[in-house]
């Protein structure tokens, strides 16, 4: 499991499926406000695509390098979420009251849309990084140290 997969079928299918899964995650993230979905689901779909990438191609491949880089983003999602709340505070309202998100040139619905979207992006980033981090800890805790976090 912890070596690179050498089957050409698996590799080709993964090359096809990983971008599709990531595109679908973005769709769920950006259209989750007006339909089913949202930041949580989008983050998990993104995580599964990343896990597929490093299980099939290994951590040394370009895809695996990307996974390692993603690990450095632990906590950025929370900062985005809390930052949106802080911006609402600066705008003169309560914490996370998107009506007071003071962004010039936006009317009230667009302001709320932007606030919720930013918060969802924060949730998605947090969930994605956490999922990848847990899987990496489980998968590579007994081999030689391949990660540097």
């Amino acid at each position: 499991m912890k070596q690179i997969h050498d089957s050409i079928i698996v590799q080709t299918m993964s090359r096809l499926l990983i971008p599709l899964a990531q595109l679908f995650a973005l769709y769920v993230l950006f259209f989750g406000q007006y339909g089913p979905g949202g930041g949580f689901v989008a983050g998990v779909i993104w995580t599964t695509s990343m896990i597929l990438a490093f299980l099939v191609f290994g951590l040394k491949s370009p895809q695996g390098r990307l996974v390692e880089k993603v690990l450095h983003g632990d906590g950025i999602g929370l900062i985005i979420f809390v930052g949106v709340g802080g911006l609402c505070l600066i705008g003169g309202g309560e914490f996370l009251n998107y009506a007071n998100l003071e962004i010039p040139g936006l009317d009230a619905p667009a302001r709320r849309y932007t606030g919720i979207l930013l918060a969802q992006i924060g949730v998605a980033v947090d969930v994605a990084v956490t999922g990848i981090s847990i899987v990496l800890s489980l998968a590579y805790h007994d081999t030689e140290q391949e990660y540097d976090v």
Binding site: G77, L78, D126, V127
Partner: peptide, 20 residues
């Protein structure tokens, strides 16, 4: 939702501390 996100973040940190 914010506190749930904090819970997920804490779970990731705890897994990294225990397993790595």
């Amino acid at each position: 939702t914010l506190i749930e996100t904090v819970v997920i973040f804490t779970a990731g940190i705890a897994c990294a501390l225990l397993l790595r």
